[in-house]
Design a protein around this nucleic acid. Structure first.
Lengths: 231, 231
DNA sequence: GTAGAATTCAAACGAACGTTTGAATGAGTT
DNA sequence: AACTCATTCAAACGTTCGTTTGAATTCTAC
């Protein structure tokens, strides 16, 4: 079936790399087959020959990266769980295991890692049903394990709150990676996008948010206006 | 045929409402003129007649909401600045002035406010150049005033750090509004999407992140790429 | 060196896109 | 009544889309 290339084994990867860049630049829908094949320097029909459909191409792009990314995340979680056997890992260690691999991938400019992470961040909110479906499948196991680890590391905190805060953290991280230009458009300056400095900045913020005092939900149902107390 | 013999100014707003919903559901590109006019129950040519082009329609949808949203934000900032004349507002008050109007708009299900805020959250990362351009223009003044207020409320904290954290906060908020279904896909349960409970949850998280200890950047500078070298 | 499979290629496919057209239809004015 | 002007309508415009086709080309193996 998928017997490796006889002719030019480069063609497949040339397409993948070109498509990845174009998807980041223009979005999934706005990137046409002709743009991809032109940039890759291959024939138009090559995409359908090697990948079948455009959706399949998209799926392969995400899979080749996500499988490796989540493998690293789970390995990191295994590591910290093995280290601190008795009491289990601390919340900061769980967060590090989850977010550091993605930030390190976002640092890699040589192999397109940064390109892909920008694409991934944008795709979390992509309405495309096909994309959302396998994104959920690809993340299911990883999310489940990390949420459990986070629950265990924060005994006494309602799981619903942890889930929400994990949601917030993923949003902050995605924007940090995907949309440097977003705030750049907004705020002007912002020349310093050095990803090596991003990690400590983001981790401080995420930990501060995760460990913030729980909100007072006593009259949250009807509350329209009013000042939630800040510690 | 579809509208029995009546001419009316409804056509414009019918198109706007239908388009807003469809843009949220399928994205800007994937929503066609024919989908919009069919849902609105108007003739295909009506969009071009009333709005000129599809891009103009998109722009009008965002403008009619964003102008009002940023007006509310600035009014709220004026209010807190007038109240606490001498020492200036506290960070929590600045954040409230910025984020509460958007969350309240996201609560409004009757007039499509929630629909629009989901669309807006997704659009922050939209590659569409046309959309990004006027989004930046529309936000320029508001962002500038709020960043200044935030700088003043946190004397001694490097502005670069505040800018980053504001970026993180916008990311977390956008995801909280736009992508409840994102985490829902990931995590399963999550039935409770009551926006009235979202506000205190989010504010606690944001304040915790904003006031987190500053990261230690002592040796983050020189390290460019991964840890290929042992220290 | 020739058979046969794998890959590339130029060309075309039908469908869907945003937009334009020109005639039909309505309400308001004189 | 007739005229005006804004709006609606069915139909078509040219373009681009993702995909398919069938012949050429290149590689592998005998």
């Amino acid at each position: 079936m998928s017997t490796p290339g006889k002719h030019g084994p480069e063609t497949r990867s040339r397409i993948l790399d070109a498509a990845e860049e174009l998807f980041v630049e223009h979005g999934l829908d706005a990137t046409s087959m002709r743009m991809i094949t032109t940039k890759a320097g291959v024939n138009l029909a090559a995409v359908n020959y090697h990948f079948g459909t455009k959706d399949n191409l998209i799926q392969e792009i995400f899979q080749r990266r996500l499988v490796e990314l989540n493998r690293q995340r789970l390995a990191a979680l295994d590591r910290v769980e093995a280290e601190v056997a008795p009491e289990g890992p601390r919340p900061s260690q769980v967060l590090e295991a989850f977010f550091r691999p993605s930030l390190e991938l976002a640092t890699d400019t040589e192999h397109g890692g940064r390109t892909f992470m920008q694409l991934l961040g944008r795709t979390y909110t992509e309405p495309n049903a096909f994309v959302r479906k396998f994104l959920a499948e690809e993340y299911a196991e990883t999310l489940q394990r990390f949420l459990k680890a986070l629950y265990d590391s924060l005994p006494g905190v309602p799981r619903e709150e942890i889930l929400w805060r994990f949601h917030f953290m993923m949003g902050a991280t995605s924007y940090a990676i995907a949309g440097t230009d977003t705030l750049q458009l907004f705020a002007g300056k912002f020349d310093d996008a050095d990803p090596a400095r991003l990690m400590p900045r983001l981790m401080s913020f995420l930990l501060g948010g995760l460990r913030a005092p729980l909100p007072d939900m006593t009259h949250a149902k009807t509350q329209k206006r009013g000042r939630s107390r800040a510690a």
